[in-house]
Design a protein around this nucleic acid. Structure first.
Lengths: 212, 212, 212, 212
DNA sequence: AATGAATGAGATTTCATTCAT
DNA sequence: CATGAATGAAATCTCATTCAT
């Protein structure tokens, strides 16, 4: 009310930052809890407590509890896609190893977000479609294109590129899903490298055209 | 009073059948709903309605709602393990194809049970441990032994058998998990066969010792 | 329908006995349970189980659960009143001792009935009025008359007979209530005698006219 | 943020008052209802209605219905023990009269609490043990010591002090229990005085060493 | 914006009673 | 008469959301 024309922009910038910080605190708290016991078993009271604010304050940042879930699910920015968007991703063995390594590199702080998205996708249609499938399809498409290219280049056997992509994704899934399910801890960088190498070797020697 | 000794068994048999029918009706209704929207989002009212009985009747068969969940999770009898217990499972290409085919053969009626177990494992510790991990470990162990045998026989490359088992499971997971997540429909028998064949080919040509 | 005029009476007699036996079994089971955990915390299922019959069978003998309670409360036939109705009850020290002794003589099998009546009187108006107060008032009246007689005979001090009666009842209550509350075990016959003697001595030396 | 150090205490004080008022309102409402119809026959709906709040609000103050009961039972602060702790309690006739008088002085507002504790003790083990018996034993012990002292001083007859204590408690019970049971109204101050006087006279003339 | 007590709709669970067998 | 599964009304309890401060 006292603010004049000059204050606004500054206020707004600050305000934006403050709002962003608030949202972040909430999302981080929520992600951890969602990852542990699931969305439905987490109360807004718990989220507020972990975010160190009052229950009512949550509603200054989100419309409702589900809004927090959707934000958490969307936030989860795994480096998977980045890794796969690299046009060199399947260029040669080392590139593939590097790709798997990077794709498995989910930071401790990102894990709850990824877990939440993965878990709640089986229960929430919006998350399944807008957050989960969209990414999977994107990855699938990139992989398919890469593989088609390698086939055209005479490096891979002339298989169904779509199925090949699915195969690669499966193998990657076998590496990362246990951690997302909470059934296994996150692999250390060393474990990631060694896993990636072995898996790529096994994959390649099947997928690569054999010279005999 | 005189014919008690004879009546009891008959009464019990009838009673057993009636109870089994009741339990089964409830579990079947519950499994479908759990698979669709998750345990926490399914109300006892919905279960009762779908099982065509009064809400209170549920409690003549189960102690509480979670009791239904546990029964559903335990019930899920996928043919996976049976398929894998076949000592011939990895004998040759055809045996492997057949194994994958059988392991993917989840009937429409069993699917909700399997889905429930798969989904709720990430939220319910008892299910995760007693129902989910137990089976996974069993499968893993069987595969590892099979693979170690093939390596000893000079058929497979001398890789880490444990990692090989994980690889096979990953590939199988890539085939079946989408259906369990509700992200894809169950594959038809034909699709199963074709999927199994391609996947085995890709797997084998990596795992098989290359001559020349 | 087949029965003729001669059968009826015999049938009826047998029937009466059978019915009486059934009621008794139920009441005995119920009294025990009511005494342990109270009427409201006892389920018909428990009563039926303890009476070794099916739940539905209860309703062949009683209109409803409360009917069982009322019957139990009414049944409780403590020897208190009988003891007090003896015209000699307060005649001399020995008679008084004997009276207290007899009045405390609640058999193990009667205890649950007495306990139930005592406990539920504080919650159930019908029991309070029709089963509890009626008896208390009767006892009070008898005692008052006895005491008035002793005063007239110059044996007791010229006190308010009503208050004297209340005093005697209080002392008796102090002896028996703990057992009814479940706070103390039933006194053995020896304990009863010794208690009665001491209590009477204490009572008498206050109530008896002192000769100086 | 600046004035936090100062605000907190004030906030807390206000909060304490508000909470205390809430708890008190609930306990008062509950005590009245429990005293009338018993714990098991009182619904949370009734309690909330009488406390003039929504049913759910109860659970902001207590974990569950039983929590309310326990709080009510604990609250009941009868002046009995205070009266008995007076070292002069049995000093002479007037002291005894005064003691009984004070011990009977249960205010109208405290009565439901006392009634609840008395009634529910027969059904709830925690209340019986932690709330009821503890106090009875305390009273008993104090009385016993007083009496032993009077005996040593040659004022009372050389009786068993424990039994004497029980006797005093019985007489007191006879005075107060009817009110606790709901079988009689609370005595007015005048009635209390007159009752105490008569009862003490009767007690004393038995318990007091007779000169003659 | 922040607070957190109050709300009330809705979920789970209990259990006396009925009724078909 | 006996049975016990089915019923459904009612009780307890949870928790996302609101709102006065």
């Amino acid at each position: 009310m006292v603010s004049n024309a000059m204050d606004r922009p500054r206020f707004n910038a600050r305000r934006q930052r403050r709002i962003a910080r608030g949202r972040q605190r909430i999302m981080s708290a929520a992600a951890t809890l969602f990852a542990q016991t699931g969305f439905a078993n987490t109360t807004t009271k718990e989220i507020a407590h972990r975010a160190d604010m009052a229950e009512g304050t949550l509603y200054n940042y989100f419309d409702n509890k589900r809004g927090i879930l959707l934000a958490v699910a969307k936030e989860a920015e795994t480096p998977m896609i980045a890794a796969l968007q690299d046009p060199q991703a399947l260029e040669d063995r080392d590139a593939m190893v590097s790709m798997f390594e990077k794709a498995m590199d989910i930071s401790e702080s990102q894990l709850p977000f990824a877990r939440t998205r993965f878990s709640e996708a089986s229960v929430d249609d919006v998350i399944l479609q807008e957050s989960f499938m969209v990414r999977l399809r994107k990855i699938h498409q990139l992989l398919e294109e890469h593989i088609a290219g390698r086939i055209a280049a005479g490096v891979f056997r002339p298989i169904d590129a779509a199925l090949g992509a699915r195969m690669v994704m499966s193998v990657f899934g076998g590496l990362i899903v246990p951690a997302l399910r909470g059934a296994a801890p996150l692999p250390s960088p060393e474990e990631r490298h060694s896993l990636a190498e072995t898996v790529v070797d096994l994959l390649l020697d099947g997928i690569r055209l054999r010279d005999s």
